[in-house]
C-alpha cells in the first residue's frame, strides 16, 4: 500500500483547500460589497463612476 496517500495527509489537504476557499470567497464578497457601495454612494450624489472607478465627466 505504499502508493496510497495517508488519511492524515488527505484531511490536511482538504483542510487547506477549505481554508483557501474560505479566504477566496470572503475576499470576493468583501470586494463586491465595497465596490457596489462605492458606485451606489457616488451615483446617489450625482457623481457616477465608470466600471474602472474613474469619475464620469
Amino acid at each position: 500500500m505504499p502508493n496510497e496517500p495517508c488519511q492524515k495527509c488527505v484531511s490536511q489537504k482538504e483542510r487547506k483547500m477549505n481554508n483557501l476557499k474560505n479566504w477566496v470567497l470572503s475576499f470576493v464578497i468583501a470586494i463586491a460589497v465595497f465596490y457596489t457601495m462605492d458606485h451606489a454612494i457616488m451615483s446617489m450624489q450625482g457623481l457616477p463612476l465608470k466600471v474602472d472607478m474613474t469619475p464620469a465627466q
Binding site: N18, N19, N22, W23, L25, S26, F27, I29, A30, I31, V33, F34, D38
Partner: peptide
Amino acid sequence: ANFGNALMVAIYLVAIAN
C-alpha cells in the same frame, strides 16, 4: 468559525484599502 473569521478579516482589509 473559519469562514466567519476570514470574512471579518477580508472586510477589515478591503475597507482599509477602500
